[in-house]
Write a protein that binds this DNA or RNA. Structure first.
Length: 434
DNA sequence: TTTTGAGTTGTTCGA
DNA sequence: GTCGAACAACTCAAA
């Protein structure tokens, strides 16, 4: 009989340091075999065979593998359906329990439920920990126990809760000797999984003190490096959100606010999973979207004739990233000027964004469309010219992504702002009148 | 239960 | 050019 072990299953927490579930596993008293599963259910949905997110994950795994190899341990990486892989691993190793960190997306919840059930039937424990966010699920709720749906009171309660429950550190990186000793195993290559590498760099997993200090003043200026660029690292857990919050708390209240927004949207998704398909405010699903596919294609390609919109879409297409201010502008433009269903825009972002996160992306789109919790009022239609004047007054961002914007060859606006605005207000009014 | 104050990120119009 | 009101009332949170 082989040595009893516990498995630690990495998902959106691809780091060895300050990892709650890993810390618990390493303290379980049994040697820990770390695993990762490239989930074919998810990978098959990806159209782009150079999808940079797959590469990002691969790279993060390789980095952990280096450290683990030095400790005489190894990460066992598989490719397939999670339940089947877990069943296989439980046959191969003498598994006493499976440790992991919670994932609040509907697909993940259903997957974990199924796996936990199978494990339980086979006498194996399943432990999942909160690691992805600072406060989750029921931790920050109204006095009557119900979830908040308005951000500001949520954020006040969140901050009060933090004072009562200061952030702890989980020194998982200090227990590397508790891994199961084993000869190195190879990580499946991208190619073997039907993907290929593109020569592209990822943003660093560090933050700049000056950027955080000036975050409030500069975060809205897409022509300036005024944001942290840490979204992708929070998404895949290559940095710890707890550590980040702790370190930046004294530097910028508005930066911490963005981390609270992240918790807020994850909490909302947990309590209202139907928002993946439906408007948070159901009456917004009565809107008669125009859904013109030619206009949608123009929006996707950055050919709307509105330079700030086109710059954003071109940045997204070229890099897998878009500045947050511009995300709002292009989302407002798609839903309100073009009257295209927010789900179309949401799906396009899901396909393209390196830092794509279901909770935040859905929250952002429903906010822009007006259909979300605590959303922009429906009559608030961003004026692309005014937004440019305010946030890109010297056209730095526009010049970078749409160098031909002043030339004759640049397309005429796909819609006239004033007309589109009126059409939007009229269309929304029909859907929302009682 | 009732009341009161407030609500991420805007725009337009008219005095 | 500047400023406040209207947009449209509504819902939420908390006292």
């Amino acid at each position: 009989m082989s040595t009893p072990v516990v498995l630690f299953w990495f998902r959106r927490d691809l780091r060895l340091a300050d990892n709650v579930g890993l810390f618990a596993a390493l303290n379980s008293g049994l040697p820990v075999q770390p695993i990762f599963i490239f989930d074919t259910e998810i990978l098959e949905e990806l159209e782009d065979k150079e999808d940079r997110r797959v590469q990002f994950i691969h790279q993060a795994l390789e980095r952990m593998q280096e450290v683990l190899t030095e400790c005489g341990a190894t990460l066992d990486v598989r490719h397939g359906k999670p339940l089947a892989i877990i069943q296989k691993l439980c046959k191969q190793y003498s598994v006493r329990s499976v440790y992991t960190n919670e994932d609040y997306e509907p697909y993940a919840r259903q997957r974990d439920e199924q796996i936990a059930k199978w494990l339980q039937k086979n006498g194996i424990e399943f432990h999942a920990y909160k690691d992805q966010v600072i406060f989750a699920k029921q931790e920050v709720v109204k006095d009557d126990g119900k979830p908040y749906t308005v951000f500001t009171p949520y954020s006040r309660k969140w901050r009060a809760h933090l004072l009562q429950h200061p952030i702890r550190s989980f020194g998982s990186e200090k227990k590397l000797n508790a891994f199961y000793p084993q000869k190195p195993l190879a990580i499946p290559s991208l190619k073997s999984m039907g993907f290929q590498a593109a020569e592209l760099a990822f943003p660093p997993d560090r933050w700049n003190k000056k950027v955080i200090q000036q975050y409030k003043q500069q975060r809205d200026l897409p022509g300036v490096e005024g944001t942290s660029r840490l979204g992708v690292h929070l998404r895949f857990g290559t940095i710890s959100v707890r550590q980040l919050a702790k370190e930046t708390a004294s530097l910028s209240e508005s930066f911490v606010n963005e981390l609270i927004w992240r918790d807020f949207y994850h909490m909302i998704l947990w309590h209202f999973p139907q928002i993946v398909h439906q408007s948070f405010k159901p009456e917004y699903d009565r809107i008669q979207w125009r859904n013109n596919t030619k206009e949608f294609d123009a929006w996707c390609a950055g050919r709307t004739g509105y330079p700030i919109v086109d710059a954003g879409m071109r940045e997204l297409n070229a890099t897998g990233y878009m500045h947050n201010r511009v995300r709002m502008i292009v989302a407002s433009f798609l839903t309100k000027h073009l009257l295209i269903d927010w789900r179309w825009g949401e799906a396009y972002f899901a396909k393209k964004l390196l830092d794509f996160d279901l909770a935040a992306n859905n929250g952002g789109w429903q906010w822009a469309a007006g259909s979300g919790c605590d959303a922009a009022p429906y009559f608030r239609v961003f004026n692309p010219y005014l937004q440019t004047q305010k946030f890109d007054p010297e056209f730095r961002y526009i010049r970078k992504w749409v160098p031909e914007w002043e030339e004759f060859s640049y397309p005429k606006p796909i819609v006239v702002h004033e007309e589109a605005r009126k059409r939007c207000l009229a269309t929304y009014a029909v859907a929302l009148k009682k």
